[in-house]
Nucleic acid binder design. Structure first.
Lengths: 205, 205
DNA sequence: TGTACATCAGTGAACGCGCGTTCACTGATGTAC
DNA sequence: TGTACATCAGTGAACGCGCGTTCACTGATGTAC
């Protein structure tokens, strides 16, 4: 019996494993995640994940890195779409895209920021998160060049922008908002909060 | 041999167990937390935690509820101290206190927002988090009465304020900031970000 | 002052389980000659 | 066209372990009479 043939029909195994991590976390929570369950979902022996990712931390780091790459992709798309409208609106777009990604892939988003479970030395992970971060920095730089930053410190604005989007996404995912905020549509909330921030910090229009 | 006598000398056992949770998470991460390790730290049988908290989720919920109570205490103290200076500065104080609490007790802060590991039906937990949330709402209400809110929606400002403080705290704890932001003193960052937010959203002074 | 009883904090043994890692292996595929 | 060899994806059995929960129990304390 050829297992290789079966898995060739299925698809790239490491890729399928990463996909299964999301499923597993969605069903049983991040703290219950196990190599064996992930392997089971893909229909592969429980030793397979370690074969490709070295160990559990390695697998989760690959998953987190993929998350940062996806986040960067989503943000880039959004930036392309709002290229013409200036830095301030581009910043609002990033906020919206950030929250949209987090809410669409809460399991991945969660793992991306749980360093206790990751291999902190993974260069794949660092590169991926750097790429995402640099998109924010570039946009703030654009704001500065357009003069909408006033005398504010660039890094501080970047940090505030990241914080507000990250906080909104985290609070939503943790379930703290649904029963506290009447308008419980996260897309709308993300738009409103991003716009509030940009209007207030960078000046209206 | 009287175990009861020993533990009477030590102190209230449930309290000691809650304390030990923080220690354990600090050392091994939240995902490695076990009832048995917590019991070991207190010097009590591994069945003791279940005796007091029913099960693991119950124990963590009690820990999270304690966290919300502590957070509310810290925020209340800060509000008392800045009572005279008006709603805007009170709001900045809340932000600083929120981040200070989160950074001082990262293990507890983390558990407070990991609902996948908590007993969501715990009324102790809900009451504690409601109390903390209401402090924010009251302060925003004060801002509205002082007219510093302009035509902004109260709930939206509350959400934005919570998000920015929560995001900053989470990003710091996750280790994303230390090597990205040159000024890596979290107290200073929290002050600057809070002040930026309040100045921008509520108008300078 | 003494006895009987209820309460309850905490024990410790037992359960069955799923876990991560290791390792020698199989068998398919591609390449060199 | 055929053979020999290296590579590597994936297996499956075995390991030792720590876990959460259950349960009958002990023994100290407080209360009622």
């Amino acid at each position: 019996m050829s297992r290789c043939f079966v898995s060739a029909r299925r698809q790239n195994v490491p890729e399928a494993l990463l996909e299964a991590i999301g499923e597993s976390i969605r069903e049983h929570g991040a703290s219950a995640l196990s190599l064996r369950d992930v392997a089971r979902r893909v229909g592969v022996s429980h030793a397979a994940p370690a074969h490709f990712f070295k160990n559990k931390a390695g697998m989760l780091s690959a998953f987190a890195a993929q998350g940062f790459r996806r986040l960067a992709d989503v943000v880039e798309d959004e930036l392309d779409r709002s290229k013409a409208v200036g830095g301030a609106q581009a910043l609002a777009s990033i906020g919206r895209a950030y929250v949209r990604f987090a809410v669409a892939e809460p399991s991945q988003f969660e793992v991306m920021f749980r360093l206790d479970v990751l291999d902190a030395t993974s260069s794949e992970l660092q590169e991926a998160s750097d790429r995402a971060f640099s998109l924010l920095i570039t946009t703030i730089e654009q704001c500065r060049q357009e003069g909408s930053l006033g005398d504010r410190d660039e890094m501080l604005v970047a940090l505030a922008a990241w914080s507000i989007a990250h906080g909104l996404a985290s609070l939503w995912i943790s379930g703290q908002l649904e029963w506290r905020i009447a308008e419980a549509n996260i897309e709308t909330l993300a738009s409103s909060v991003s716009q509030l921030f940009v209007d207030a910090v960078l000046g209206r229009d």
